[in-house]
């Protein structure tokens, strides 16, 4: 699965299938601080993803 972490402008490849909340935990990301976009649409942390999906993790912290 392709994961783009916006905060670090980092693109990574990871084998994962399951709930997004578990994925975030494995990446040490607090779900309160991000939005997750799956294949172009906003999804909740309770949604599931698999290896065919492309995921974007957007930081919600204000730019000031």
């Amino acid at each position: 699965m392709k994961i783009f972490i916006e905060k670090d402008e980092k693109m990574m490849e990871k084998k994962f299938s399951g709930k997004i909340i578990v994925l975030l935990k494995s990446l040490d990301i607090n779900p309160t601080s991000v939005l997750v976009v799956k294949n172009g649409s906003l999804v909740t942390e309770e949604d599931s993803v698999n290896d065919d999906d492309s995921i974007k993790i957007l930081n919600v912290i204000s730019g000031g």
Binding site: T32, L35, L58, I61
Partner: peptide, 10 residues
């Protein structure tokens, strides 16, 4: 919340 504002903007 920050997350709500971000979701709204998106």
């Amino acid at each position: 919340s920050e997350k709500e504002v971000a979701a709204y903007a998106l």
